[in-house]
Amino acid sequence: MATATASLDIPQSPARVWQLISGFGSLPDWLPCIPESELSEGGRVRRPTNQDGSAIVERLQAFGHEARSYSYVIEQALFPVTGYLSTLRVHAVPGRPDVSRVAWSGTFTPRRCE
């Protein structure tokens, strides 16, 4: 199993950043490479489409408004991975109430291309 992580500090309060990114279908509002994201199954499944028109299917697994986090799995994608689970979190930066840390982490198993 492989693990990947990334984080970014943003000069805005955690509440403001979470307000922008907490919607499971809100990717087009804050991620420029995703111009479209369609929700289904009552907002628990999203189908983000990238700039070349290819899409993946992701399912929300957990959502914590108070914890400012959500986790999702990829059910269908063009890239070779299985067992994909990611979590997106917004944290306060200690001592900096005006700065947020957005942290993304993911685990997956690379699949051999044939």
Rank of each mutant, 00 (worst) to 15 (best):
P35S: 08
P35M: 07
S37T: 11
S37K: 04
S37P: 02
E38S: 02
E38I: 13
L39Y: 01
L39K: 01
S40A: 09
S40R: 07
S40W: 00
S40G: 01
S40D: 03
E41A: 13
G42F: 05
G42T: 06
G42V: 07
G42P: 03
G43M: 06
R44I: 00
R44T: 15
R44H: 10
V45C: 02
V45Q: 01
V45A: 01
V45T: 12
V45D: 02
R46Y: 05
R46V: 04
R46N: 03
R46A: 04
P48W: 08
P48D: 08
P48V: 10
P48I: 06
T49E: 03
T49R: 14
N50A: 09
N50R: 13
N50L: 05
N50Y: 01
G53C: 09
S54C: 05
I56T: 13
I56A: 12
I56G: 06
E58Y: 04
R59P: 07
R59Q: 14
R59W: 07
L60N: 06
L60C: 08
Q61G: 05
Q61H: 11
A62H: 14
F63M: 07
F63K: 12
G64L: 05
H65R: 13
H65D: 15
H65C: 07
E66A: 15
A67I: 02
R68N: 06
R68K: 14
S69D: 11
S69C: 14
Y70F: 15
Y70Q: 09
S71W: 06
S71A: 15
V73Q: 15
I74R: 09
Q76M: 06
A77G: 13
A77M: 10
A77D: 07
L78C: 02
L78K: 11
L78T: 12
L78I: 05
L78H: 13
F79M: 11
P80Y: 01
P80L: 10
V81Q: 10
T82F: 00
G83N: 15
G83P: 00
Y84R: 05
Y84K: 07
L85D: 01
S86E: 10
S86G: 13
S86W: 01
T87H: 07
T87P: 09
L88I: 11
L88M: 15
R89W: 01
R89P: 01
R89M: 08
V90P: 08
V90R: 03
V90M: 09
V90H: 07
V90A: 11
H91N: 14
H91W: 09
H91V: 02
A92M: 05
V93S: 07
V93D: 09
V93T: 08
P94A: 14
P94C: 02
R96K: 15
P97A: 14
D98C: 04
D98E: 15
V99W: 14
S100L: 11
R101S: 10
R101Y: 03
V102P: 09
V102F: 06
A103V: 09
A103M: 07
A103G: 00
A103L: 08
A103T: 08
W104K: 02
W104A: 04
W104I: 03
S105F: 00
S105D: 07
S105C: 03
G106K: 00
G106V: 13
T107M: 00
T107L: 00
T107V: 11
T107Q: 11
F108M: 06
F108N: 00
T109H: 01
T109G: 03
P110L: 11
P110N: 04
R111Y: 00
R111V: 15
R111F: 00
R112M: 11
R112Q: 14
R112I: 12
C113L: 15
C113N: 12
C113S: 14
